[in-house]
């Protein structure tokens, strides 16, 4: 029906025992198929925002909520957590806290068992999920013996088996080592390539988000301070600095060069962009020097 999946209208929220609100006057909308990244320092309200989208607030965690949160046009207040969980899957930060069955196949089955799906259907979905993420070899493994990356992939798989249209991720790689983090990011990439999934991800690894997200939100002390595509986001130096967030290292390099007077039409924010651009720039400079053609401040890009 509607293309807008989530809508927040002037939402403020304060936890029951908190003195200050965690979110203040947040308004935004998320469309079907978008990949939205949420960035911000600790305590800026990122997880709270995610909880509002998932319905965890107000159904599971309580506090003072003003404004309206809508999912597919309906206020989340009016829907139950059970109803929402059929459409919205959540992957949390700690892999240990998301695996509570002994074997991986049972973990994948668990969410489906709760929904009363027939056995054959469950079996089919388990196989489909294992194949989708390439983790067939983990089927009979004991969950607590897996590596961090494997655990988190199983957690994502457990959601995939339920096949919601929307995935919410709360810092999915922060507890993982680099290898594990890469495998989880790769798993998310596979999800992204699937048609029309909506993804909202809270992440500190800005480098990664920049490569996948359509849109990045910056949260600072409970407010949405920036809401724009990655390239624009990375170059909003002042807002990022005020929030204590660092953009990707290459973007920082771009700032530093711009400040030093170099003119870059399209300042690179990733290594993949930076390499050809700077190679070209350096080649042109040395050609110019030998050909005595260029003047100072020659534009690049």
């Amino acid at each position: 029906m509607t293309d807008v999946v989530f809508e927040l209208e002037h939402v403020s929220f304060r936890y029951q025992r908190a003195t200050a609100p965690t979110l203040e006057d947040v308004s935004l909308s998320i469309r079907r198929g978008e990949f939205v990244g949420i960035i911000g320092p600790t305590g800026s309200g990122k997880t709270t925002l995610l909880y509002l989208l998932a319905g965890v607030i107000p159904h599971y965690l309580h506090g003072d909520l003003t404004g309206e949160v809508r999912f597919a046009g309906q206020p989340t207040r009016a829907l139950s957590l059970a109803q929402l969980s059929a459409h919205v899957g959540v992957v949390l930060q700690d892999p240990e806290a998301q695996l509570f069955n002994l074997l991986v196949r049972d973990e994948l089955a668990w969410g489906l068992e709760n929904r009363g799906l027939p056995r054959a259907e469950i079996a089919g979905r388990i196989e489909r999920t294992l194949r989708f993420f390439g983790i067939e070899r983990l089927r009979e493994r004991i969950t607590y013996d897996l590596s961090g990356g494997e655990k988190q992939r199983v957690a994502v798989g457990a959601i995939h088996a339920i096949s919601p249209e929307i995935y919410l991720f709360d810092n999915p790689t922060s507890q993982l080592d680099p290898v594990g983090a890469t495998t989880v990011i790769e798993a998310v990439r596979r999800l992204v390539d699937t048609h029309r999934l909506t993804i909202v991800m809270v992440e500190d690894k800005v480098d990664e988000l920049v490569q996948h997200a359509d849109r990045l939100l910056l949260l600072d002390r409970g407010r949405v301070v920036l809401d724009c595509p990655p390239r624009e986001f990375c170059l909003q130096r002042d807002a990022l600095e005020a929030a204590g967030v660092r953009p990707p290292q290459i973007a920082e390099l771009s700032y530093a060069l711009l400040e030093a007077g170099l003119v870059l039409d399209s300042p690179p924010i990733t290594l993949e962009e930076a390499t050809p651009l700077f190679e070209d720039l350096l080649a042109r400079r040395s050609a110019a020097r030998s050909g005595a053609q260029a003047g100072p401040g020659e534009a690049a890009g």
């Binding site: 998932a54 965890v56 139950s80 957590l81 059970a82 109803q83 969980s85 899957g89 959540v90 049972d106 089955a109 668990w110 969410g111 489906l112 068992e113 709760n114 929904r115 009363g116 799906l117 027939p118 056995r119 469950i122 079996a123 457990a158 959601i159 339920i162």
Partner: peptide, 17 residues
């Protein structure tokens, strides 16, 4: 979030896989 209370909330019978 993965439906521990789903069966009770929606009046559905759990499957034992």
């Amino acid at each position: 979030l993965r439906g521990f209370n789903y069966a009770e909330a929606m009046g559905v019978q759990r499957t034992v896989f």
